[in-house]
Amino acid sequence: MKPHTLSILVENKAGVLSRVAGLFSRRGFNIESLAVGTSEELSMSRMTIVVIGDDAQIEQVMKQLNKLIDVIKVSDITENETVERELALIKVSAEPGTSRAEVMQIANIFRANIVDVGAKSVVLQVIGDTDKINALETLLRQYGIKELVRTGKIALIRGAKTAKSAK
């Protein structure tokens, strides 16, 4: 059981997201994260879904996804060299004084940006792979995370190869 990253090209049509999401819940597959947006072609969207399962389960997920008429291509890019990114916004308690300075220092180390400063809190924006964001989140917990949102992972295969040309 390990996380697999699926890159899925779908028709850019109403209802596609619910077809895909419905398939996952109906067949008992667990979505770790899901990110969806436009792709290189106007008529297609690309979904990046991280799903946890053993090889047989992942094979079933991919086969079932492929059966959806609006799904054009499903690729498991886990084993490829990929560029993976996720963005998180984290609102942390940071009273002026010691804790704020510490939070800003941590942000610096992680190359996170302070995108909002309030009286008692700051909002950090961080971009990176899943591990980096997890690490930052863990560090910031001690100061008190008031709100957090993550986009879910998006990924592309490195080099000239594309998910479409991958197996």
């Binding site: 109403a14 209802g15 619910s18 419905g22 109906r26 959806l68 008429i69």
Partner: peptide, 14 residues
């Protein structure tokens, strides 16, 4: 009805 029948049709259209 397209929502209701999504899991029991091969495909559906509105």
């Amino acid at each position: 009805i397209t929502g209701i029948t999504m899991p029991i049709t091969k495909h559906n259209y509105l």
